[in-house]
């Protein structure tokens, strides 16, 4: 991987008086696949729009390929954007939608035709050339929007929730497809998602955002195994997060002694990390569901509900049963406050 390709420096983005993104700093390398992950309203779309040139930053700068593009018009940046809402042209058929940008470049008709057809094939829409967007399903429209951007061979391709409207099977297919296109063309991609599994599966690096700020930045493995804050941990599936006080953990409900003295302010466990059926603590089962390889329990304890997964081999506990559990040091993830 080469050096920084897209550089956001102290980028501040506002809507009137509302600051959506305060002083964001982010470097993206060439050919990298970056996932912007975060809850609704955290500023993912806003950041994308700024990179694309659709939103003028209140302050800060954007560099692409070493060039300052902060004030450059959107149509001169060579950036592709697949909109959350697709933004297809309703008056044009699928072919003309994809060919739209190529026609503006006044390319020879034959090249327009071949590139358009190839682009449609890439997203699995061959044969749909004559359809109007209104005559296509949500997923097909999304793929059409993707093809429309891809054929432009942008330097950077931004995708705003590109897979959100697809069914599970298509989603997987398109994931692979996106990765293939990305590896093939070497295009730098930034995609937005709500879905941590998708971010983990696709991205080279994940940018986890909260309220316009980067909460944590790292590879999928880093974020998955070593979230640094309670927010990051929660996003990565640590469902039991407690404050540490001496050698106990506590929350609004009460506290539990751990039997060891952690040196962090907060500890978190995945449901997998909570040991069930043995241990020093007792609780009452308030929910139990079968999830294939394991059972998912919600145990009402001194800390309120604790989520725990138990191996299918263990005897099943019924709702209302008393169940012992442990919060082992080995599976605890220390977090900063």
């Amino acid at each position: 991987m080469s050096d920084t390709f897209v550089q956001l420096t102290d980028l501040t983005l506002t809507y009137g008086k509302n600051i959506a993104v305060p002083a964001l700093n982010l470097s993206i390398r060439e050919g990298e696949l970056i996932a912007l992950l975060g809850p609704s309203g955290c500023g993912k779309t806003t950041t994308m729009r700024a990179i694309a040139g659709l939103l003028a930053p209140a302050s800060g700068s954007i560099h692409i390929d070493g060039r300052d593009v902060t004030r450059l018009a959107a149509n001169k940046r060579g950036i592709g954007l697949v909109f959350q809402s697709y933004a297809l042209f309703p008056h044009l058929n699928a072919f003309e939608n994809v060919a739209f940008g190529l026609r503006l470049q006044k390319l020879p008709e034959a090249e327009i035709k071949s590139r358009t057809e190839q682009g449609m094939a890439t997203v699995g829409l061959s044969g749909f050339e004559g359809r109007k967007p209104a005559e296509m399903s949500g997923g097909q429209q999304q793929r059409l929007a993707l093809a429309r951007s891809l054929v432009m061979r942008p330097k950077v391709l931004l995708l705003d929730e590109p897979l959100s409207n697809l069914d599970a099977r298509l989603r997987l297919e398109m994931r692979t497809e996106l990765q293939r296109v990305q590896k093939e063309t070497g295009v730098t991609m930034v995609f937005v998602t709500h879905d941590q599994a998708e971010a983990l599966a696709l991205a080279d690096r994940i940018v986890l955002m909260q309220q316009g700020k980067i909460e944590q930045l790292g590879t999928p493995a880093q974020l998955y195994a070593q979230p640094e804050t309670a927010f990051a941990a929660e996003f990565m599936g640590f469902e039991n997060i407690f404050k540490v006080a001496g050698d106990s953990v506590q929350n609004d409900h009460g506290s539990l002694p751990l039997g060891y003295r952690p040196d962090s302010a907060i500890l978190a466990w995945r449901p997998d990390g909570v040991r069930v059926g043995q241990g020093p603590h007792q609780g009452r089962v308030t929910a139990c569901s079968f999830a294939g390889g394991h059972r998912e329990y919600v145990i009402d304890s001194a800390l309120g509900p604790v989520k725990a997964n138990a191996d299918i081999a263990l005897p099943e506990a019924q709702i209302g049963d008393s169940l012992s559990f442990d919060l082992p040091q080995a599976t605890a993830r220390p977090l900063r406050a």
């Binding site: 149509n75 739209f100 503006l104 929007a145 429309r148």
Partner: peptide
């Protein structure tokens, strides 16, 4: 939707072209 014009601009249209090629036909 306003984002259609934005899409057009990102595909290379000037503002005026976005109006004549995307808004007006619709």
């Amino acid at each position: 939707r306003a984002d259609m014009e934005e899409a057009a601009v990102l595909l290379g249209c000037s503002r005026m072209q976005a109006f004549t090629k995307v808004v007006l036909p619709n």
